[in-house]
C-alpha cells in the first residue's frame, strides 16, 4: 500500500501566520506520510497523481495573483479532484482563489478566480477584520456530535456568496464569510475552505482526529495525535475561554446575516 501523500502548494508564498505548521503537525501525527512541497515554478504533484490531501495556506495579495496565474490552467483537474473526494484544506485567504473574483479597489485590480465556488471577495486594505471564532463543524455522520472548533481570523477581505448548502462552520461566536454571516467557509465533499488562519489544526485536536480518519483507509485503527495530551489540554483551555461570555474579540454578524446563517 502506498504511503499517504500530503501536498503543500506554493510554500514559498503561501506561508503566512504560521499556517504551514498545520501540515508539519499532520505529518507528525502521520509519520509514514510523504510530504510533497510543490513550488510556484514547478508543476503541482496533483497533476501527476492523486494526493490524499492538498493544502494551500494564506498569502499576500500579490501572492494571490501569482498563485491564480498558475492554478487557472489546472482548473479542470482541481474540479475533478474535489468531485472525486480528495481532501483539500485551504486556510486564510487561500479559499478566495477558488471563488469567482477577487476585487481590490485600493490597489485598483480585479482577479479572475477559479470559479469553483460562487464566491466574490472584496478587499478593504484599510479595514482589517480581526476576530476570534467559535463554531461547530458537522461531521456529517448521524452517530456523532458536531465538533467545536476554536480559531482566529484576520483578513482584509469580505467574501460574499451563498454558502448555506456547504459551509465549514456554523459560528456560535465570531463571523463567517463576511461581517453579516454566521456561516464560515465552504465545504464540498472533502474540500474544506476556511478563513481561519494560523495553526488551526494544532489548535483543534478533535478536527485533526476527524481529518486523519478521513485520510486513513476504512477500518484502520485510530491514531494517537502528536503530543495529544498537551494539545488537548491547550484546546480545552481555549475552548473554555472562548465560551466564556466575558471573553471579547469576537466580531458579531449583523442581524440579517444571523438570520440567514
Amino acid at each position: 500500500m502506498r504511503p499517504l501523500q500530503l501536498e503543500m502548494l506554493y510554500p514559498e508564498i503561501a506561508n503566512l501566520f504560521g499556517d504551514t505548521q498545520n501540515l508539519r503537525y499532520l505529518a507528525l501525527c502521520l509519520p509514514e506520510a510523504e510530504l510533497v512541497r510543490s513550488s510556484l515554478n514547478e508543476e503541482p504533484a496533483f497533476l501527476r497523481r492523486r494526493p490524499d490531501l492538498i493544502y494551500l495556506g494564506p498569502m499576500t495579495e500579490n501572492g494571490q495573483r501569482l498563485a491564480l496565474e498558475r492554478l487557472l490552467s489546472h482548473r479542470e483537474r482541481i474540479a475533478e479532484l474535489i468531485a472525486d473526494g480528495t481532501v483539500f484544506l485551504c486556510t486564510g485567504n487561500a479559499l478566495e482563489l477558488f471563488g469567482e473574483r477577487i476585487v481590490n479597489p485600493v490597489q485598483d485590480y480585479e482577479l479572475e478566480g477559479l470559479g469553483l465556488f460562487s464566491l466574490r471577495s472584496e478587499l478593504a486594505l484599510f479595514d482589517r477584520l480581526n476576530s476570534k471564532v467559535l463554531g461547530r463543524f458537522d461531521t456529517g455522520a448521524s452517530d456523532s456530535e458536531p465538533i467545536t472548533l476554536v480559531g482566529f481570523k484576520s483578513q482584509f477581505s469580505q467574501v460574499y456568496g451563498d454558502n448555506t448548502d456547504g459551509f465549514f462552520l456554523r459560528c456560535t461566536r465570531g463571523v463567517g464569510l463576511n461581517r453579516s454571516s454566521a456561516l464560515e467557509g465552504v465545504r464540498r465533499n472533502n474540500f474544506f475552505g476556511t478563513s481561519l488562519l494560523g495553526p488551526m489544526l494544532i489548535l483543534n485536536p478533535p478536527f485533526v482526529r476527524y481529518l486523519i480518519e478521513l485520510l486513513l483507509p476504512t477500518g484502520e485503527a485510530p491514531r494517537h495525535l502528536a503530543f495529544e495530551q498537551v494539545a488537548q489540554q491547550a484546546y480545552e483551555e481555549r475552548l473554555r475561554e472562548f465560551e466564556d461570555p466575558r471573553t471579547s474579540g469576537f466580531a458579531s454578524p449583523s442581524s440579517a446575516g444571523a438570520a440567514r446563517g
Binding site: 476570534k132 482566529f152 484576520s154 494560523g198 495553526p199 475561554e241 472562548f242
Partner: peptide, 13 residues
C-alpha cells in the same frame, strides 16, 4: 485584554 490571546505567532517563531 480580550480574555484570550491570539497565539498564531508562536508558529511563525
Amino acid at each position: 485584554q480580550g480574555g484570550s490571546e491570539n497565539i498564531t505567532w508562536l508558529y511563525d517563531c
